[in-house]
């Protein structure tokens, strides 16, 4: 186990800079998830940590030791790839034991280690099978087993669940989280799925265009997003963004409603409110409009409301008695659930 530190990490391909000075400290045993849209640089960062991409600028430290110029094998890391990367011509036992080929261990010790890992992953009965005799989830467990067997300082996961179906993904998510609680290694996990990030991470690193947008616990990034990008990226459905104008401590929405503004600001402001916090119940009346679509989710129903000037917003209504399509509704939110952003910079107003 070890800490991980990224210092002013820069990556350039030819003349194009794709990572613009990433700084991050990961504590020993912490589970950190990098999340962001395609092309944001999260996988590049992970590959640089692994030593699969050269570092253009800055430094990477694992356990306090700079590893910029070390080969991947010398960094004390293990990586689980998106497409598992388990060798089809080898049995599960050989796949799991592959990482021990260069380890200075006796053969009985290696076998014991493989059996131990297989037992942790509940794969003892599958050790003699070939990968094509395994399900997607079992293959993923083999890939994790191959990473675990070396007992690395840092585990790196590169979108390992994206090839699994929804049910299996949920199951594997839980298994990886339990595994982390059991073995306690430092984990860096890359995903584009914000649900994976929210459910697994101790801390989430949200990236966009080669920059870190926010680092925080799932609760922090959900309840206190640093900017409109984070606010919209985290949470499903996305946060509603309503254009407004601030003046003298009062925010006037383009829909005509007014809200007390806790932050000091004058001029254009974006008011954010999550669909979970916007509904027909108590609170400040924010928008009024006509229901255009209903999406029943069981206990609740998502309603899409056309507000005219403010565009379309999403709100939640009761699952048993949702308003009819075409009905005029007034959507309310509690003041403590409102988020305020500078309309020009997108940064949160505090």
């Amino acid at each position: 186990m070890a800490t991980l530190a990224l210092r002013d990490l820069v990556k350039t391909y030819d003349k194009t800079e794709v990572l613009h000075g990433i700084n991050l400290d990961v504590a020993d045993g912490e589970f950190v998830v990098f999340v962001g849209p395609s092309g944001c640089g999260k996988s590049t960062t992970l590959r640089m940590i692994a030593g699969l991409e050269e570092v253009t600028g800055g430094s990477i430290e694992i356990g306090g030791r700079q590893v910029n110029n070390l080969e991947p094998k010398d960094r004390d890391i293990a990586m689980v790839f998106q497409n598992y990367a388990i060798y089809p011509h080898m049995s599960v036992r050989k796949n799991i034991g592959f990482g021990l080929r260069t380890a200075k261990m006796s053969k009985p010790d290696k076998e014991a280690r493989i059996d131990e890992v297989a037992a942790i992953l509940d794969m003892t009965d599958l050790l003699d099978r070939k990968p094509n005799q395994l399900s997607g989830g079992q293959r993923q467990r083999v890939a994790i087993g191959r990473a675990m067997v070396r007992d690395p300082a840092v585990f790196l996961f590169d979108e390992p669940l994206s090839n699994l179906d929804a049910q299996l993904r949920t199951q594997m998510r839980l298994e990886i989280k339990k595994l982390h609680q059991r073995v306690g290694n430092t984990i860096v996990f890359v995903t584009h799925d914000q649900v994976e990030a929210m459910t697994m991470a101790d801390r989430i690193v949200i990236m966009k265009d080669g920059h870190i947008q926010q680092v925080g616990t799932p609760a922090e990034v959900y309840h206190s997003p640093a900017n409109t990008f984070v606010a919209r990226f985290i949470g499903a459905p996305s946060m509603n963004m309503l254009p407004a104008t601030a003046s003298g401590g009062v925010l006037r929405l383009d829909t005509g409603s007014t809200v007390d503004l806790p932050a000091r600001a004058d001029g254009p402001v974006t008011l954010g409110v999550r669909p979970d916090d916007l509904g027909l119940g108590e609170g400040v009346a924010l928008v009024r409009g006509k229901v255009t679509v209903r999406e029943p989710l069981g206990p609740e129903t998502l309603i899409y409301v056309d507000t005219g000037a403010g565009g379309e917003v999403i709100a939640k209504a009761d699952g048993r008695t949702p308003p009819e399509v075409g009905a005029e509704v007034t959507l309310n939110a509690k003041p403590e659930n409102l988020h305020f952003f500078d309309a020009n910079t997108g940064q949160a107003l505090t």
């Binding site: 692994a50 094998k73 890391i77 990586m79 790839f81 990367a85 080929r101």
Partner: peptide
Amino acid sequence: IEAARIDGL
């Protein structure tokens, strides 16, 4: 290839 590289081959 990269997995094998990380595994030390």
